[in-house]
């Protein structure tokens, strides 16, 4: 990781920029959700808004994970652990919702 002084200085700039990005992302999310001008679908809250909002949140959290949590500097092992974890978390969400939306009476 960053050890020499110049490298640290370079990193500092990157951190401020990421911080600014995160701020901007938050503003955009609120705008999408609350301002009529940004309504992507029907007025008020629609599926499109939700998808947009969650996409932005995903981008933001990826930034946090990669830059602030230095995942971009880590070796493969942590990725393996995290990929597994995300696979299971994702599987849990998807399969639970899948079974919710497929009740037995729908088949008759």
């Amino acid at each position: 990781m960053a050890d020499s002084a110049e490298e640290i200085a370079k990193h500092k700039k990157a951190y401020w920029i990421v911080g600014a990005f995160l701020f901007a992302g938050t503003v955009i999310t609120v705008a999408v959700a609350r301002l009529e001008f940004f309504d992507l679908g029907a007025p008020g809250i629609s599926a499109m808004d939700v998808i947009m909002g969650l996409l932005i949140a995903t981008v933001k959290s990826t930034l946090v994970a990669l830059i602030f949590m230095h995942l971009n500097h880590e070796k493969g092992l942590i990725y393996k652990i995290l990929v597994f974890t995300c696979y299971f978390a994702f599987g849990m969400i998807v399969l639970m919702v899948y079974s919710l939306l497929d009740p037995i009476h729908a088949a008759f």
Binding site: L22, T26, T29, V30, A33, D49, G53, L54
Partner: peptide, 11 residues
């Protein structure tokens, strides 16, 4: 929190 904010406050 980045996820909690939109799902609890916005949508």
């Amino acid at each position: 929190w980045i996820f909690l904010f939109p799902i609890m406050y916005l949508f």
